[in-house]
């Protein structure tokens, strides 16, 4: 369904080129739930925005993003407008900032449905149906409210309803559980599981537990590159890359053992393996040469220890 091939996303800056996504390739097949995990600033959101072609003007994209036989990197804006919010929908990171504060919830959703139906009454009815599907309690009442009158969890449900209103084939959810309390987080996880039963999902998150509950397959990103991928259980319970192992050890239930140091600059990334300055298992060759991805069964890892 979605095939990304050797994709690089580069932002020009005064200090040099920021290579936010570096030569990434992966596919998402029909009805597959894929998770993309990694630290802040590793390029997860940029990749999601790249698929939607919502990056700032001047951004350089190399490689291909093939969706239903269309290369999204080369498609013109008119076709992209039909794909965005239609075949591919995105739940943005911060629902408070993503919703328009001066338009009520119903009108924000029906505005999108209106594009196809051209009938305001039918669009309003459909908007309320979408809110009901997204699990918003008493949708007739709450649909007439403004974003500031809704809680974080309710706003996230509105975002889900809005994303589903175009009947997407692929849903990109960018940090849908961020800043939600425990109950709201669990509800949003269940909701995403429910609404993506028949569509594909790309879940961008640093909530490892959420990705474990929702996804079939997980990709781990570090400094713009995919360092490990595989079935969810294998990546989370038997991680192979030292970075993935570090992320899993950092979780509170595993004793809060952080990875030392911080993510590298994407303007002048470290030589060799980008993770080597923070890696507890680094060898001499890690500093000099970048490891190539190695397939092990239906998993992939980029680490010299597995070559």
């Amino acid at each position: 369904m979605l095939c990304i091939s050797q994709l690089s996303i580069i932002f020009p800056s005064f200090e040099g080129q920021v290579i936010a996504v570096n030569n990434i390739s992966f596919t998402i097949s029909h009805n597959q739930k894929t998770g993309l995990i990694g630290e802040t600033g590793c390029g997860k959101t940029v990749l999601g925005m790249g698929i939607m072609r919502l990056l700032p003007a001047g951004t350089l994209m190399k490689g291909k993003i093939i969706f239903q036989n269309i290369d999204l990197t080369k498609t013109d804006e008119l076709i992209l407008r039909h794909i965005r919010g239609g075949s591919i929908s995105m739940i943005m990171q911060n629902p408070t900032l993503s919703l328009n504060p001066v338009i009520n919830i119903r009108d924000q959703i029906s505005e999108k449905i209106m594009k196809n139906k051209k009938n305001i009454k039918k669009s309003n009815i459909d908007a309320i149906k979408m809110l009901e599907k997204a699990g918003l309690p008493d949708p007739h009442f709450w649909s007439l409210k403004y974003p500031h009158e809704l809680s974080g969890g309710m706003k996230q449900r509105v975002m889900v309803a809005m994303a589903l209103s175009g009947s997407p084939k692929l849903l990109i959810a960018d940090e849908p559980t961020k800043s939600l309390d425990f109950n709201a987080r669990d509800q949003i996880i269940s909701l995403i599981q429910e609404v993506t039963k028949e569509i594909s999902l790309l879940l961008i998150t640093h909530d490892i537990e959420a990705s474990e509950k929702i996804c079939d397959r997980i990709f781990v990103m570090y400094a713009g590159e995919i360092v490990e991928s595989g079935p969810t259980y294998q990546v989370i319970h038997e991680p192979r890359h030292p970075y993935t192992q570090g992320l899993i050890r950092s979780m509170p239930k595993n004793g809060l053992n952080p990875i030392q140091g911080s993510s590298p600059s994407l303007i002048n990334p470290p030589s060799g393996c980008r993770f080597h300055p923070r890696c507890l298992m680094r060898e001499e060759r890690c500093e000099k040469f970048a490891p190539s991805p190695v397939s092990i069964g239906n998993s992939m890892v980029s680490c010299w220890r597995w070559t």
């Binding site: 630290e39 640093h206 490892i208 992320l247 911080s262």
Partner: peptide, 14 residues
């Protein structure tokens, strides 16, 4: 640590 990722969260709590 609500707005931080899992590794930075562990660093700040430590």
């Amino acid at each position: 640590t609500a707005s931080l990722d899992v590794s930075v969260q562990a660093q700040i709590l430590r």
